[in-house]
Computed example of a mutant assay.
Amino acid sequence: MRVVAAMSGGVDSAVAASRMLEAGHEVVGVHLALSQSAATLRESARGCCTIEDAGDARRVADKLGIPFYVWDMAERFKADVVEDFVAEYEAGRTPNPCLRCNEKIKFAALLDKALALGFDAVATGHYAQIVEGPNGRELHRAVDMAKDQSYVLGVLDADQLAHSFFPLGDTTKPQIREEAASKGFYVANKPDSHDICFIADGDTQGYLAKRLGKQPGDIVDSDGEVVGRHEGAYGFTVGQRRGLGLKVPREDHAKRYVVDVQPKTNTVVVGTADLLGVDVIEAEHARWPGPPPTGEVRLGAQLRAHGEEFPAWVSADGERVTVRLDERTRGVAPGQSVVLYEGTRVVGSATITATSRAPR
């Protein structure tokens, strides 16, 4: 097969490209230029897709003897990931830009371009597994649960999955580094990227303040009493405890958390931890890498990357999903994604729109 290997410049994508080549595929390395001013992005371990990362990817491609290209997707990334990120926070929601990047860039824009150019598939360094099941290809968790990235791949649909390869899913991260070192890859010991790649200093609240400006408003307790002020409700998320700057303490000195963000009134609502617990989740924009569930089915629900999986009853109606957790959990915010599992298999994902508490 003719395969585009998405090469970020890290050790994982380097080994993924190498494995696809060893499997007998015709491989072309592609690095995605996602910033209109890459030199302003963070360097070294803290991000991805910087100028130095492009150089690292090119060195690996040269070592493998495969063609290498840089594809400029900065405009698409800005519109579909960066602007979406800002708009979601402004609307009082908490987005995951990595899921949006996978959905809109790596497995939409990149895959679409690859297929248009006559390639058969895209391979990435994500930690997940593809298994041939009774209904076709299935997306499963990686062997290395500490690195499992099936959550951020839950946005793939069946057609995208049919044109994808994840060669690292059966291997642990230490083994990947050993393999990279044995092949003489310069990036064998390169630290992993983390945080949000387009926020140079990791300060999400500061980044949003620069984009959206100061929007002073009230922080109120659950009974409506004003207990503080803020510079923009967009800078808060459900479950947050630090950085609230409350001026009026509770008589019982109980810790308070953000329990609601109300963008229409520019109000942040805080309360005690017991108010955070929810067990009913409404979501939309469902994505199914295989057949969608019919009726009410028993599945596991994961609410954040590398988070706990919760047993739940799930029902789907088109692009809408209702998840009823067995037990209440805290810190679930609109805008986050719920990814559904049957064992290790990813059933689908959806974006959370509302949460509530079922009567006990």
Rank of each mutant, 00 (worst) to 15 (best):
S349Y: 00
V226Q: 06
A209Y: 06
D218K: 10
H230S: 05
E22F: 11
A181S: 14
K247Q: 09
R345S: 02
L275Y: 05
V270L: 00
A23H: 05
H230Y: 12
C49M: 07
D84E: 15
R2T: 05
G47C: 08
G243N: 01
G239M: 05
Q129C: 02
L168V: 04
N135R: 15
K147W: 06
G217R: 11
V143I: 02
G10V: 15
A200K: 10
E225L: 09
Y341G: 03
G343L: 13
G133P: 02
C101E: 01
D201E: 10
E342L: 14
A286Q: 00
A333N: 06
K78E: 11
A61G: 12
A23V: 11
I66G: 14
K173S: 07
V339K: 00
L99F: 04
V11M: 14
Y151Q: 00
V278A: 03
M7G: 06
V238A: 07
E342Y: 08
P334Y: 05
A286W: 03
E138G: 05
Q160M: 07
P311E: 14
L325N: 07
K63N: 13
D260C: 03
M73E: 11
V27E: 14
P311I: 14
A181L: 08
S44V: 13
D252G: 04
D56K: 01
D112K: 10
H285M: 10
E284W: 05
V280Y: 01
K106D: 02
D62P: 10
V60T: 10
S35Q: 08
S13P: 08
E251N: 08
V321Q: 02
G277K: 13
R320Q: 15
G217E: 11
D56I: 12
C98F: 03
E179S: 07
G184R: 07
R328W: 07
W71V: 10
A158W: 00
L208W: 06
E309C: 13
D12G: 05
V238E: 12
V82D: 03
T171N: 00
L299F: 12
S44H: 02
L41Y: 07
C197E: 13
D317L: 12
